[in-house]
Design a protein around this nucleic acid. Structure first.
Length: 894
RNA sequence: GCCCCUGUGGCGGAAUUGGUAGACGCGACAGACUCAAAAUCUGUUGUCCGCAAGGACGUGCUGGUUCGAGUCCGGCCAGGGGUACCA
């Protein structure tokens, strides 16, 4: 057996059993043998096929699809996984006990950059590395005792998975939902690769250290913006999603109404396509402030900026500087607002003869609107900052309610509030909304613009210049252009013989892979060497799980039966991208005839992160929790006695070295302990702080429940039906109230409360058995104790399934607990007929009174006024008012 | 910068959704058992004043609404997540 943890000094911070205490434990037969028991029941569930379901069952049980976000196979499970899969498993087991036909599958998000990084640093093939990791992690997950249908396991890097994705891409291409677009990327000139914003540190590539350039690259895009309105409207129906996630998605889509305005240009450079830049198109949400316009500004990536740069070294230098900033929104928004004046001017559409200066400015995004703005300093903060810096006019054109037109001035802050237009000719006197409408009407009349709806959402760029991803199935032909790979030739598989050590994309450099004949005309052509963003795989895996071995991507019967996912569970970090992409992809698949569904996830739960204290040694190096122990004086020290600085609790990460390996915890304490600790204390949507002491506490409870049942079982009457008598002792009432509370808590994802209620029941059982030795004697009290112990065991079933299963058996029950229905509370035992009311005087608590449930108001008043504490506080003053809230509170106002 | 979330004892958290703040767990302290320790069991444990009875204060800060605010509203402060090629 594994050494049970001791609690001697040091153990609390070592996560290892104190071997000194092993010997006595080995002799102590009353201890629960965690390791043996957990293995025994995992094998029993597997043998019985408890969690295996059919693709399209003919069942009268209602279906329930529980899904946790599938893991990236990094090699070992981490605590975030343990938390995620524990939560999902509680739901899966609970719903199963409630009579649902539960689908609970598992798979691997197996493409991605870490495999290539590992290949580079360790010399392993990305595929081998990935499959080895999958094997290791599968074992670890199985050790958690999850109620998963392992026969449905999938890995996205397997051609049997991604060939369907390639087919889907061809359908998207056919349906006009996939297209090619030029876009700007971070380019590392040394590694010859595109970098994510997070890989650009101070303008340099994370690995090469080279200065990052902005490059324009032709990339495959999915037309998610075609669904912008639908994805926004669909959020309303997702009533089992957290409000905050819906809000984040809504903000991400960023619908705004406004106008496109065309400013005639003067003095534009030569070299532009004729007529292409006669007029500058800008987007604005504030057409009502057009009369306050002081300038126009172009994105550094705007075509006109490029043309101007060709003639002006100053502009070219400015653009080069902007490009160093990177492409991240945060970098652009937090940078100092800067610009450079161009020789071009823009004519105001409403004011004859007014020429506005045109700048190239670092805060204008090419990706949003038309890549150009007009600036109204008085009513936009960025424009104001810019105007102050370059000495431009600040002319207010919206007068706040009650302000005086003669004296209203703009100081350091732009005025963004409501008001009426002034200094604005034909708009004068109109409220903001009316002024917007009037301005748009005039623009349309003059042919100088139009009302429009703009989204912040951009199309989804799916091209990645990587090897370890799903190949994009097209061929570039010198005569035909882009030619889809014929369906019969799918899948386009990755070559195995690649060289990952050199810079650039291994697919691009492969000697033969990309050279093919054009499927259309037969001339020598080249395969697309980009692979998909891994978010593409995760946008449909939940559908594949419904019929994972189907010849096609999915069968209609299976997806019609199982989808949508009833409960999806994962980290909040996926609140926008993964979830929005999946919502889009399902709509695209619907167009392609794959399924008939809009929303993939009917219910969503976002869990918090797992955190741990951070430790640093005297040299500042981050120490892992295993390197830290408690010294003789109680302070934390390293194994060789050096002092340790304890830092704030932070998300477990390799960089802070504050991770705790779940495998070690499960090895030492068992899966049930790890699961129980994950569920206790912290609400699942909040961050959880992992502590050694907390694990010890969870482990103590495992042992305690074990003793509670096994020590009583000899004296209990044999298994039978529950006592029929509706009346019952305090203990019996407590047990039935616990059923009710735990059921409600699980339904509402309040596992920490459920855990607290189970502790209470366990405490109540201890108290009762200690008080009444008679309970063992075999009369009615014995049957009652049996009922309460069985309730305890059944309630912990979804949370600590191994322990519960073992105790169910030891209680002499036939069959496995996993096949038992969820316990039902007897309503006659859960309602008390007496209640305690708080009594306040002027809102301060002065006593409590016990009254029959639903007692009349005047009875409550009389009882309250008779309380000695109440009379003392009233000090002889007559009550002015008495508020009575039935069964709750009486407040006497004097 | 922008969007979103969080803030309650020594610690994790609970509070019937506007009605007894601190359930339950951890830690600490005291006691029982033991030759001793571990394990286990019992009790105490928000702060301050008081021998006690009892009282005052108390949910990041600040102002408000209310008979009554941890909960609702305004303004701030601090920490975290996302910010489009990490997954």
């Amino acid at each position: 057996m594994s050494g049970a943890p001791g609690a001697g000094p040091g153990a609390a911070h070592r996560y290892l059993p104190t071997h000194a205490s092993d010997s006595h434990i080995k002799q102590d037969m009353s201890r629960y043998n965690v390791k043996e028991t957990e293995a025994k029941w995992q094998a029993a569930w597997e043998r019985a096929g408890c969690f295996t379901v059919e693709d399209a069952p003919d069942s009268d049980r209602p279906k329930y699809y529980v899904l946790e976000m599938f893991p990236y196979p990094s090699g070992r499970i981490h605590m975030g996984h343990v938390r995620n899969y524990t939560i999902g498993d509680v739901i899966a087991r609970y719903k199963r006990a409630r009579g649902f036909n539960v689908l609970h599958p598992m798979g691997w998000d197996a493409f991605g950059l870490p495999a290539e990084n590992a290949a580079r640093s360790k010399g392993v093939h990305p595929g081998d590395w990935t499959y080895q990791n999958i094997a290791a992690m599968r074992d670890q997950l199985k050790g958690m005792g999850l109620a998963i249908d392992w026969s449905r396991e999938i890995a996205t890097c397997h051609p049997e998975y991604y060939r369907h994705e390639q087919k889907m891409f061809l359908d998207l291409l056919r349906d006009g939902l996939a297209y090619r677009k030029e876009s700007w990327v971070n380019w590392d000139p040394v590694d010859q690769t595109v970098l994510a914003n997070e890989q650009v540190i101070d303008g340099r590539g994370w690995r090469s250290g080279a200065t990052v350039e902005q490059r324009k690259l032709a990339q495959w895009c999915f037309r998610i913006t075609a669904f912008a309105e639908e994805l926004l409207a669909g959020l309303d129906g997702l009533d089992r999603w957290p409000e905050k996630v819906r809000l984040m998605q809504s903000n991400w889509i960023g619908r705004s109404e406004g106008a496109r305005v065309l400013f005639p240009l003067n003095g534009q450079p030569a070299g532009l396509a004729p007529g292409a830049q006669d007029r500058l198109e800008v987007f604005t949400t504030r057409p009502d402030t057009l009369f306050g316009a002081a300038f126009c500004a172009l994105s550094p990536n705007h075509p006109l900026s490029g043309a101007l740069a060709a003639e002006s070294p100053e502009i070219a230098a400015f653009i080069a500087e902007c490009n160093k900033m990177g492409t991240s929104e945060a970098a652009i928004e937090t940078a100092d607002k800067k610009g450079v004046l161009t020789p071009v001017t823009a004519s105001h559409p409403f004011v004859e003869g007014l020429e506005l200066p045109v700048y190239v400015a670092n805060f204008v995004l090419m990706e949003y609107g038309s890549g150009a703005i007009f600036g109204c300093p008085a009513h936009d903060q960025r424009d104001l900052d810019f105007a102050r810096k370059y000495g431009l006019e600040v002319r207010p054109v919206v007068l706040p309610p009650g302000a005086d037109a003669g004296s209203f001035e703009i100081g350091a802050e732009a005025y963004l509030g409501p008001g009426t237009a002034y200094n604005s000719e034909f708009l004068d006197g109109l409220e903001v909304a009316a002024a917007k409408r009037a301005a748009i009407a005039r623009l349309e009349e003059q042919g100088a613009g139009a009302g429009t709806v703009q989204y912040r959402l951009r199309d989804w760029g799916v091209s990645r210049q990587r090897y370890w991803g799903c190949p994009i199935p097209v061929v570039h032909c010198p005569s035909c252009g882009i030619v889809p790979v014929p369906e019969a030739e799918l899948p386009v598989t990755l070559p195995r013989d690649i060289d990952v050590s050199a810079a650039g994309n291994a697919l691009e450099r492969h000697p033969s892979w990309k050279h093919v004949d054009c499927p259309a005309c037969g001339v020598a052509a080249q395969r697309e060497t980009d692979t998909f963003d891994t978010f593409v795989e995760s946008s449909w895996y939940f559908a594949r799980f419904c019929s994972p071995r189907a010849e096609g991507a999915m069968t209609r019967q299976a997806v019609d039966y199982w989808l949508p996912v009833d409960q999806y569970i994962g980290g909040i970090e996926h609140a926008v991208l993964h979830l929005l992409y999946s919502r889009f992809f399902v709509r695209a698949l619907k167009r392609g005839g794959y399924l008939d569904l809009e929303e993939p996830f009917a219910g969503l739960f976002t869990q918090g992160m797992v955190c741990h204290e951070t430790y640093q040694g005297p040299d500042g190096a981050w120490l892992s929790p295993e390197q830290v122990e408690r010294g003789p004086d109680g302070a934390l020290v390293t194994a060789d006695g050096r002092p340790v600085t304890v830092g704030r609790s932070e998300k477990m990460s390799k960089s802070k070295n504050n991770t705790v390996d779940p495998a070690r915890i499960i090895e030492t304490y068992g899966a049930d302990t790890a699961r129980w600790f994950m569920l206790s204390d912290s609400p699942p949507d909040r961050d959880l702080e992992w502590t050694a002491a907390g694990v010890e506490g969870a482990y103590r409870f495992v042992q305690r429940v074990w003793r509670q049942v096994t020590e009583s079982v000899e004296t209990l009457p044999p298994p039978g039906p529950a006592p029929a008598d509706g009346a019952g002792s305090e203990l019996r009432r407590a047990a039935h109230k616990t059923i009710q509370a735990v059921t409600e808590d699980i339904e509402r994802f309040r596992f920490n409360r459920a855990v607290a209620r189970i502790y209470e029941l366990s405490n109540a059982i201890s108290g009762a058995t200690a008080n009444t030795a008679r309970a063992r004697a075999g009369d009615g009290a014995g049957a009652e104790l049996r009922e309460c112990l069985e309730i305890l065991v059944r309630l912990i079933g979804p949370m600590m399934p191994h322990l519960a299963e073992e105790l169910w058996q030891r209680l002499g029950r036939e069959g496995m607990l996993v096949d038992q229905p969820w316990p039902e509370a007897d309503p006659s035992l859960t309602i008390e007929d007496s209640v305690t009311l708080a009594v306040q005087v002027n809102g301060k608590l002065r006593g409590t009174i016990d009254l029959p449930r639903d007692a009349a108001e005047d009875a409550a008043e009389r009882a309250a006024l008779a309380e000695p504490g109440v009379q003392r506080a009233m000090a002889g003053k007559p009550p002015r008012k008495i508020i009575v809230v039935k069964n709750r509170i009486v407040n006497v106002v004097v």
